[in-house]
């Protein structure tokens, strides 16, 4: 782990009351994050996204969140008032969502959405905000920032939309970023571009990154450490470089799903899910 701890999560639980009883989406997740890249891997429904949203404070109002510790840079997030948490969001902790087609406001120009983040957190004039937004668009490798500034989200491609999203979330200079499947909705050809941009910005600015994905291959090539989640629990936590020595059968199962050239794979392996892993 590099540097001091940014985020400390201990025994995080997220429960949703429903008509048929309580549904535990996250059941006692613990980890800590420094200025490094941490990957969280799991299938859909494993609780990885809810973990990210609980840290952001973006779980729906009916959800119940508990943890013996949930602290960002010494600030106890569960004890913080909504106002204090809101001041953290966007300013010190940011989040990138999956699909720019839905996560950007369709009736507001891209430029205005970026400026909005900045002016929520810093007292800057209009002209200066515009200049900084343009600079940010350039930083995410958009070639013609002045033109894209005035475009609406539907007028740009998915790759460009996600770059705009990154610009919007990074403009206030956060120290930590949660990226929830940031490339899953993109074309394969632009996935690497976007990842490259994200990678560069995170390391340049010395940010902590939580990279949430279902794609173990992507996570292992991109992150320093990997957490594997299953049914709301962490089943294994290990360095990305030591992935091949994974112990847990579920992680092994995920690894076995990766195709390799030159190996005959018939029948295709089916992922094993055992009830006792979730216990």
């Amino acid at each position: 782990m590099s540097g001091r701890t940014l985020l400390d999560v201990d025994d995080l639980r997220v429960t949703f009351p429903t008509r048929t009883g309580l549904i535990e989406a996250v059941r006692g997740v613990s980890f800590s994050l420094g200025r490094e890249r941490l990957g969280i891997v799991g299938e859909s429904g494993s609780g990885k996204s809810q973990t990210g949203r609980a840290i952001m404070g973006l779980t729906p109002p009916q959800a119940r969140i508990s943890a013996s510790k949930l602290a960002f840079d010494g600030v106890d997030l569960l004890a913080a008032s909504p106002r204090e948490r809101r001041a953290l969001r966007g300013k010190r902790i940011a989040m990138i969502l999956q699909d720019p087609k839905y996560s950007l406001d369709p009736v507001m120009s891209i430029g205005r959405q970026i400026v909005e983040t900045l002016r929520t957190h810093e007292k800057v004039g209009k002209a200066e905000a515009r200049d900084r937004a343009l600079a940010m668009l350039e930083a995410v490798q958009i070639r013609d920032p002045a033109r894209v500034f005035d475009l609406h989200p539907h007028e740009v491609s998915g790759g460009m939309g996600q770059r705009a999203m990154i610009a919007m979330m990074l403009i206030a200079g956060p120290e930590m970023m949660i990226a929830d499947e940031p490339t899953s909705a993109l074309d394969v050809t632009v996935q690497l571009d976007v990842l490259g941009i994200l990678d560069r910005l995170v390391s340049e600015r010395g940010m902590g990154l939580i990279f949430i994905s279902h794609d173990l291959r992507l996570v292992s090539s991109f992150c320093d450490r990997v957490i594997v989640m299953f049914a709301g629990k962490v089943v294994e936590q290990l360095k990305a470089s030591e992935l091949s020595q994974a112990q847990h059968p579920y992680t092994r199962g995920l690894l076995n799903c990766m195709p390799r050239i030159g190996f005959e794979r018939h029948p295709l392996p089916v992922l094993d899910r055992k009830a006792e892993w979730a216990a």
């Binding site: 949203r53 952001m56 973006l58 809101r86 001041a87 953290l88 969001r89 966007g90 300013k91 940011a94 989040m95 969502l97 999956q98 699909d99 839905y102 996560s103 950007l104 406001d105 369709p106 009736v107 507001m108 909005e116 983040t117 929520t120 957190h121 999203m165 919007m168 979330m169 206030a172």
Partner: peptide, 29 residues
């Protein structure tokens, strides 16, 4: 329930701004 509302919250906007500035602007059409 749209994702851009989650994104607006992640930006740290106030609820007032989210409701009247984003959700209603979209509903206005």
């Amino acid at each position: 329930t749209q994702e851009y509302i989650v994104a607006a919250r992640a930006k740290g906007l106030s609820e007032t701004r989210i409701i009247w500035g984003h959700a209603l602007r979209n509903a206005a059409v």
